[in-house]
Design a protein around this nucleic acid. Structure first.
Length: 905
RNA sequence: GGGCGCAUAGCUCAGUUGGUUAGAGCGUCUCUCUUACACAGAGAAGGUCAGGGGUUCGAGUCCCUUUGCGCCCACCA
């Protein structure tokens, strides 16, 4: 006999790393059908996920745990179904984020700026950083249990992906979809780079609306010298007055009609600018007159284009006033605002200031106020790509879950603007364009050129800018598989199956992958997009490192185990909805993992106690049939819910099955059956083992570590026991054990589940009364059960009932009927069963009567309700099955009522 | 300005083709160291499913509307 001394509490700390190493070393993460191997079968359709690559910035957060939990669940489920699965891991160089971190680090530790270090040296330092933090983050992803194929790991800046980026850029360039030019872009003065529209976040902040006078220029003011010699204008950014090139009014605005075509004087600078008419102006906002700064405002820029106004750059890259600002040149934008306003006040040009709530644009990364300015940048002409990407979702080639995000996606695609892809950074893919100093032409090339493609001159230099991080991320699903090469991996695993990520990067990433996938590979990059919600803290606040409201996943995993955290995130969420993580929940799920473990310990000890195999067919007890039926139901439900992407609900169902049905009820009855010994013990151990086995398989995608560990013990225990046959075909590890299927051929019957439910009801009724009457739990009491049509069932189950309800087996009598009501006994009614507990000395007759009376009136209320229901149109219009169900319930209630009435005499 | 989500037990949340006694965990209360587990077991209390209207035999679930909270997009100076 093999004995296992499993520890009382599941020790996840030592188990998790050991189990993960076993998986990784065992090669279980690699696809079962590898196109690079000789036995490759191209007809087997794979299931593929590209990981959302974590940044190499060294911050593990709950978002990572969330996507690993979700994707690992999907991958493990498919893998157990025998489908070749590939989960491609990797990391993202994360241009701005990483460069900022390294810059900060350098300044802190060595007190050098990147400029002092120089580009080449700085980039070297970032690579060093990358190596370090890559190891940290991938170590942490492993720690969460990600079963991805690490041998296929990629980095957005590695050679292969750089080649893919180059290829993509050149193709777009050659197609004319990439262009360079001066445009109004979002400039981050702190980061000193352009950022895309998506990287700008707006926050409501208190500010002021400044009203001032635009004086009419002298030579045209003759006619209205005395009364109307200025146009009142309002602005939230007075410093931009320095860059004004017009004042606009609505063409139909009677107040200002006479000014249109005339000139006004820019305060403090004396420049003359025209008054123009444009329908963009809202008459009833502010003063109804709008100052136009084409160089520093997107709307003004457009108006400027329409009216051919010059766009003056009155701010430089550090947001200091340029020489355009005359006397204010060199001042910071906010100092300039103050000084200019003060000067205007002194000059009598100020009308008033008003409190005003501003919508301030700030950069997503640095957080400082973005300054719109005109700058020479690279852009992708996005409309053609967007159209195709929109269609792919509209025609169903890509499905987004939850569906409501499809609308959001369409809306974005339809209103998309060209994408500014150049960044004035050093860390990233360099723009593959060279400028010729001789002829001035551009050379865009896949391989670094030595000569100008136009004049053949040698004096060429590469564009200093790098590409937006998301430019390379957009290629991720195919670049990681070898594109642009037609590698075996690319041919077999692309297009991928599932894109699972947070809804917050739908535009940043998902949309761009779809556009790029269609453009470069001619195929959708994945067929399903599953968007999970964001993980918030207990108060529902967005977790933020700067605000200190974040929960660090590592200590949580340290305290409660990875399974507990994963299970909490999966079960606590519905697709697309945010979830608040509370440590109480994680603790509860730690308890669940421990429950699994301990139920497993019991099963293993039961297996170990079996002396010999039984011969002949399996003899099913009522409890055996019931638990098996419940298990089959759960298997079917989990399968249905997994298919419908309702992972949380699936988790809840297994949880309930395992804890309530298996651990609380079946294990308790199994103890009695084990005690019988002989064949009964064998069959019971067999049922325990089979139910545990299948439960562990169902749970494995949700709680991989504890299930793997326990399953290993179960397998070993079985193989060393008379039950060895059960496990003889099992694989070495649960991670590759076949996914459970419903097996209806077994000898259980649906009717048995209601029989067991009745037994449970009888037991509960007795327990309930005992607790109510404060009968000591250790006290065994006599009972008489009147079973009516179910008398035989009660007789058969009397052992179970007695043991679980605390009855004295020697004083229990099961009868079909009683000639007379027993004296001095408390009566209970459980369905068709009457229970008499002769609790002499404990009965308060009036109290008893009141209890029964209440039960009767509750039952009568139900009868009345159902009779009314069945007498209504319901009987005609509702489906027959539903009506039938209600009829049966009514009959049951009537029976109970009759019994209760008899009791009350 | 446009769009979306949420509002269910004290707390955190499930409840996905509308089916009639609305569930769980935590917390609370009572009891129990019963040989898998006190990270446990047994029992109990607790909800007019935000308000109003409608559709239907039947609404937590579908439609309209009001209120409150949150998010996304756009960015009227």
């Amino acid at each position: 006999m093999t004995e296992y001394q499993l520890p009382k509490a599941y020790d996840f700390k030592s188990t998790e790393p050991r189990v993960y190493e076993m998986w990784e070393k065992g090669g279980y993460f690699k696809p079962s059908n590898d196109p690079n191997k000789p036995d490759f079968d191209p007809t087997r359709k794979p299931f593929v996920i590209s990981i959302p690559p974590p940044n190499v910035t060294g911050e593990l957060h709950l978002g990572h745990v969330m996507f690993v939990a979700m994707e690992d669940l999907m991958i493990r489920y498919q893998r157990m179904k025998g489908i070749p699965t590939l989960w491609v891991p990797g990391t993202d160089h994360a241009g701005i984020a990483t460069q900022l971190q390294v810059e900060k680090d350098l300044l802190r530790t060595e007190e050098v700026t990147r400029e002092e270090l120089g580009r080449e040296k700085f980039v070297e330092r970032v690579w060093q950083w990358k190596v370090k933090y890559h190891d940290i983050i991938t170590g942490q992803i492993r720690r969460i249990g990600a079963s991805c194929d690490w041998e296929r790991e990629r980095f957005t800046l590695d050679d292969g992906l750089s080649k893919a980026v180059r290829e993509a850029f050149v193709r777009l360039y050659e197609k004319g979809l990439i262009y360079r030019g001066p445009r109004l872009i979002n400039w981050s003065p702190g980061l000193k780079t352009a950022v895309s529209d998506l990287e700008v976040e707006y926050s409501e902040e208190p500010g002021k609306l400044y009203y001032f006078k635009y004086m009419l220029a002298p030579e045209t003011s003759e006619a209205s010298k005395t009364s109307e010699d200025y146009i009142p204008v309002a602005t939230t950014r007075p410093e931009t007055i320095l860059g004004d090139t017009a004042v606009a009014v609505h063409p139909d605005d009677e107040r200002y009609k006479k000014f249109v075509g005339k000139k006004v004087i820019v305060p403090m600078l004396g420049r003359e600018i025209p008054v123009i008419a444009d329908e963009y102006v809202t008459r009833d906002f502010g003063t109804g007159a709008l100052k136009i700064t084409p160089g520093h405002d997107p709307n003004d820029y457009e108006i400027g284009q329409r009216h051919k106004l010059p766009a003056l750059s009155m701010l430089d890259r550090e947001a200091k006033v340029t020489e355009i600002g005359g006397p204010y040149a060199g001042l910071d934008r906010f100092e300039a605002r103050k000084k200019l306003w003060a000067d205007m006040k002194a000059a009598g040009l100020v009308i008033k200031e008003e409190s005003y709530t501003l919508n301030v644009p700030r950069t997503q990364r640095g957080g400082e106020i973005v300054e719109p300015m005109v700058s020479e940048q690279w852009f992708v002409k996005i409309a053609p790509l967007a159209k195709a990407a929109e269609m792919a979702v509209r025609d169903g080639r890509i499905k987004i879950i939850p569906e409501r995000f499809e609308k959001v996606y369409y809306n974005w695609m339809e209103n998309i603007k060209d994408w500014c892809i150049s960044r004035q950074l050093w860390w990233g893919h360099r723009v593959p364009v060279w400028y010729c100093d001789d002829c001035g032409e551009q050379t865009c090339a896949r391989i670094d050129p030595l000569l100008c493609a136009h004049c053949g001159g040698k004096n060429i230099h590469q564009d200093p800018d790098v590409l937006d991080t998301w430019f390379s991320s957009g290629l991720w699903p195919f670049s990681t598989l070898g594109w642009p090469e037609e590698t075996p991996d690319y041919k077999y695993f692309y297009p991928t199956t599932m894109m699972e990520t947070g809804y917050d990067i739908l535009f940043f990433w998902v949309a761009r992958m779809i556009m790029d996938g269609l453009e470069f590979t001619g195929q959708v990059p994945f067929s399903t997009v599953y968007l999970h919600g964001l993980v918030r803290n207990e108060d529902g606040q967005k977790m933020s490192k700067s605000k200190g409201t974040g929960i660090d996943p590592l200590p949580v995993m340290e305290e409660f185990g990875t399974d507990a955290l994963r299970f909490t995130l999966l079960v606590g969420s519905t697709p697309g909805n945010d979830t608040n993580l509370s440590l109480k929940k994680v603790e509860g799920n730690r308890n669940f993992a421990n429950k699994i473990w301990n139920a497993g310990r019991f099963v293993v000890s039961a297996i170990n106690s079996v002396q010999a195999a039984a011969k002949g067919e399996h003899d099913w007890s009522l409890a055996d049939s019931w638990i098996w039926a419940r298990l089959q139901f759960t298997v079917r439900e989990v399968e249905r819910l997994f298919q419908a992407y309702q992972y949380g609900e699936a988790g809840r169902q297994v949880y309930e099955f395992f804890w309530n049905d298996f651990a609380d009820w079946y294990v308790e009855t199994a103890k009695l059956q084990m005690a019988e010994g002989g064949d009964r013990a064998f069959y019971t151990a067999q049922t325990l083992a089979r139910v545990l086995d299948i439960s562990l398989r169902l749970l494995h995608p949700l709680t991989p570590f504890v299930t793997e560990e326990l399953w290993g013990h179960l397998r070993k225990a079985l193989l060393g026991s008379p039950l060895a046959d059960l496990a003889k075909d099992w694989p070495q590890a649960l991670i590759v054990a076949p996914w459970p299927e419903v097996r209806p051929e077994e000898k259980w019957e649906a009717g048995k589940t209601t029989d067991f439910a009745l037994v449970q009801e009888v037991i509960r009724a007795i327990r309930n009364l005992r607790a109510e009457k404060k009968v000591a739990p250790s006290r065994r009491i006599p009972a008489t059960l009147v079973g009516g049509s179910k008398a035989a069932l009660l007789e058969e189950q009397s052992g179970v009932i007695a043991a679980l309800a605390g009855l004295d087996p020697a004083q229990v009598s099961m009868v079909a009927s009683l000639p007379a009501k027993p004296e001095n006994a408390v009566a209970l009614v459980a369905g068709p069963v009457e229970i008499y507990l002769p609790l002499s000395g404990m009965i308060d007759l009036d109290q008893e009567k009141a209890r029964l009376q209440k039960e009767l009136s509750d039952t009568d209320a139900q009868i009345t309700r159902l009779e009314k229901l069945l007498g209504s149109d319901f009987a005609n219009k509702a489906p027959a099955a539903v009506v039938q169900k209600e009829r049966e319930r009514l009959a049951a209630f009537k029976e109970t009522a009759a019994k209760l009435k008899a009791q009350l005499g």
